[in-house]
Amino acid sequence: MNIHELLNHGTIMLPLDVDTREDAIRQMAASLERSGSITHLDAYIEAVLRREQQSSTGIGFGVAIPHGKSAGVSKASLAFARFNKSIDWDSLDGSPATMAFMIAVPEANVGNEHLQILVALSRKLIHEDFRQQLTDAQTPDEIIEILAKNI
């Protein structure tokens, strides 16, 4: 299992030009649809927005991890975006989001390797040096390399 199965150039956006949280979510979800891992875009976006309503996925440190589990997802996948301006994400620590990982997981997806990767990613995001590397990366290839190296 490698990280390439979860994300590719098409789902890495450096930078992504949006103004609001919802905009960011819609754009990132659309990139996942284009890459073929989302079959029902609206259903997935609804799941993500519903999750945001429960409590913000802005985890602080400028990072957000919008995610949703939905039948509209055909395979577990990941999108990454660094925003060209800070987005208000209603974060835990009040700081706006400067980058986001979007996680898409199919409804009936429990305990497989993809999940393990997402788990590892979540854990990694807590560490500052990992976030710094993501902030400094210039190209999608560098992002993939950072993920491959750390997860």
């Binding site: 999750r51 429960q54 996925t57 985890i59 991890i65 995610h67 949703g68 589990k69 996680i103 997981v105 999940l115 997402l118 788990v119 979540s122 854990r123 990694k124 995001l125 807590i126 560490h127």
Partner: peptide, 17 residues
């Protein structure tokens, strides 16, 4: 956490750290 994908593990990692 409800979805069990991200926050569960981030909280664990934060506490561990």
């Amino acid at each position: 956490c409800p979805t069990g994908i991200a926050h569960t593990y981030m909280a664990a990692e934060s506490l561990q750290k």
